[in-house]
Write a protein that binds this DNA or RNA. Sequence first.
DNA 1: GTTAGACAGGTCAACGGTGACACAAGGCGG
DNA 2: CCGCCTTGTGTCACCGTTGACCTGTCTAAC
Lengths: 346, 346
Amino acid sequence: MSGNAGRGGPQRRVRPTIEDVAAEAGVSRGTVSRVLNGGVNVSPTALAAVNNAIKHTGYVVNHHARSLVTQRSQSIAFILSEPQEKFFEDPNFPILLRGCTQALAEHDMPLLLSIAGGAEDRGRVLRFIAAGHIDGALLVSTHAGNPVVDQLSELGVPAVACGTPLGHEHELAYVSINEAEGARQATAHLIGIGRRRIATLTGPMDTPGGRDRLTGYRDALASARLPQDADLVAHGDYTQFSGEAAMAELLERRPDLDAVFVASDLMAVGAMAALSRAGRAVPRDVAVVGFDDSPSALAARPQLTTVRQPWPRISREMVRLLLARLDGQEPEPVILPTELVVRASA
Amino acid sequence: MSGNAGRGGPQRRVRPTIEDVAAEAGVSRGTVSRVLNGGVNVSPTALAAVNNAIKHTGYVVNHHARSLVTQRSQSIAFILSEPQEKFFEDPNFPILLRGCTQALAEHDMPLLLSIAGGAEDRGRVLRFIAAGHIDGALLVSTHAGNPVVDQLSELGVPAVACGTPLGHEHELAYVSINEAEGARQATAHLIGIGRRRIATLTGPMDTPGGRDRLTGYRDALASARLPQDADLVAHGDYTQFSGEAAMAELLERRPDLDAVFVASDLMAVGAMAALSRAGRAVPRDVAVVGFDDSPSALAARPQLTTVRQPWPRISREMVRLLLARLDGQEPEPVILPTELVVRASA
DNA sequence: GTTAGACAGGTCAACGGTGACACAAGGCGG
DNA sequence: CCGCCTTGTGTCACCGTTGACCTGTCTAAC
C-alpha cells in the first residue's frame, strides 16, 4: 500500500503481490488465486471484488513464483542447431520465426531464442533447458545424428521439428512439406512448356530437402520418359553463390540445356546471374524454376517461377503439434502440400 | 536417487534438487548454494565433494526458484515495436538478432523474443514484462512517441535502443552509428570519382537514418560547393520496390544524373534494376553507392559500393550498455563510425 | 594465555504463488 | 428431521533457491 520511489540506479518498483490484492478485495490469497485460474467456485461478489482489486493495484502474476509450483514455464524455445550463419542468411528463417512467434503469441506464450552452434553452445542450451526455462522446443534443421534431439528427449522436453528430422522420424513430431511432390510439379511444369534438356541444381544431399527434391525431379523426368543424365545434376548448398557456381558448371557440362529446376530461390538467383553472364536469356534460352517463394523470387528479374512453401501454415502447425504434445498427446506428423507459383522465369 | 521412468505422455523426469546434491556430498544446502554462486568461503574438500555430487546427480539449478528469490530472471527481451513486416523483411534484422544473441550467450543469458505490433500485442508485451520474465530489453526501432518505451521506464526495466531513439534520447541508452558521416563519406566518394549530378534516395523522413543520411549527403555537396537541387532527392522506405520506383522517378526528373547515393542496399538493388531498365550502365553512366553492407550488396551485379554498418560491434555495445544499466550505471550513448566499402558499382 | 578476526559451514525464514484439504452453510431427497 | 452433497472460502504446506544470521574452529597478534 505504500509507494517506494526508486532513488538512483534502475529503480525497480515493488510490484503488488497476490497478498495485496487479497487484502484490497477483502478475501484470502486462495480466492484470488482461484479467480486468476479460471474462477471456478467463486461467488460473483468475490469475483467482482477481486477483479476490481486487480485493476486497482495493477497486479500481474509473478511468473517465477507460479512456475516454481506448477513446474511449467509457459515458454517455448526456438532452437537452431548447427552453424548459425546458415539460418541467418536463409531468407526463410525470419519468416518461420515470425510465424512461430505469432502463433505462440495467440497462446500467450513467449518465445525464447536459442542457438546451438558448437559443442560449447550445445552445453549452454542443455543447461538452459534443464534449468526449466522452457516447456517445449521448436527445432529447425534437425539433421541425422543431431545431439540436441537426444538431449531433449532425455530431459523429457517435447519438441517439434521443421522438416523431416532424418533419423528421428519416429521419436519426433514434425511438420514438413511434400518436398518430392513440389519438385515433381516444378519439373513437370518445365516439361509442360516444352523443355526437354532439363537440369537440376540440388541442395545438400544430407538434408531431406536436398534429397527429396532431387527425387521429385527424377520422378517427373521418368513419368515423361525423358532420359536421366548425371551431367544435368549439380549440387549446391542453397546459397546464392553456390547456385552461381553450380550453374556455371552445368553450362560447361551441358551447354545445350534448356531449363533448370533449382532447389532454392537464392540459388536460382545465383543461377540466373550465371546464365546472364553466359549470354543466355531467361526464360527464352533457359527456363528457371526455384523453390521456396522467398522474397527474392519476387525481387528477381525476371520474377521467379517457384514452388511456394506455406510458411504461415507450417508455423501454425508446428505450434499446434507442440501444444498437443504438451497436452500429453502423440500427434501424427503433418505433411503439407506446396503450390507452384508461375511467374516470368518459366 | 530413484529412477522414475515416465510411462506414456511427455515423460517429465524428476530433476535432482540442491537437497539431493547436499545429501550426496554430505554437506548442507547452504554450502551447495555457496559453491553454485562463486564458491567463496568453501573449503577445497567441500568444494570438490559438491562438484562431484553435481556431476553425479546431473544437477542443474532451477531457474524459477532462483529467480523467485533473487528477483532477477537473467533474461533479456528483444523487443520489436511497430509493424513486424518491416523487421522480418529487413536483411539487417537477422544480423542484429544474431549479434545480440551471441553477445548475450557469452553472459549465459537467454534472449526472449517479443514482438509488439498492434495495441493488443502491446498489452501482451507489457504483461510479459510485468510478470518478471525479463531484466532488461533491447529495443529496435524506437521512433518518436513509442508507448513501449514509456511503459518500460514506468516498470523500471532498463532498456537499450538500436539507433537514436527520437524523442527519447535522454531517457534511453542507445547505440547508433554516425549516420550523417557515413552518408557524407559515400557522397564524397562519388564526388571524388568525378560525378557532379549526384542524386539521393532517402529512407523515411521520420527515422533518424532517413533524416541524418540526407543531411550527410547535403553536407558533402556543400563542402564541394555543388548545388543542392530538390529534384535530385527522392524518398523511399528502405525496401527494394520503393527503391525501384523512386529511381524511376528520379530519372524522369533529372535524366542527366550521373550518380546516386541510396540510403539502403535493398533500395540500391531496386535502383539498379530501374537503371538497367532505363538502359543506363552501372557504374559507367550512373554510379551507385548503397548503405548497410547487407548480404544483398555482395550478391548484386555489379557488386555494390556501400557504407558498412558495424553490426557485430553494434550488438556487442548494446549488450554492454544494457548490462551496465542492469548494474546500476548510467552509460553514455555510443556512436560508432561506419566504413565505406568500395566495390564495383562506384 | 587471552582475544579478536577470519573462515567454514549449518540453519532457517523468506520469495509469491498453487492446490489439497478442512470447514461452514445451504439445498435436498428419503 | 437427518445425513449427504454441493458450493464458497479460508488455511497452510510446499515448490527449490538464496542469503542473512549464527556457531564453532583455527590462527595470529599482543
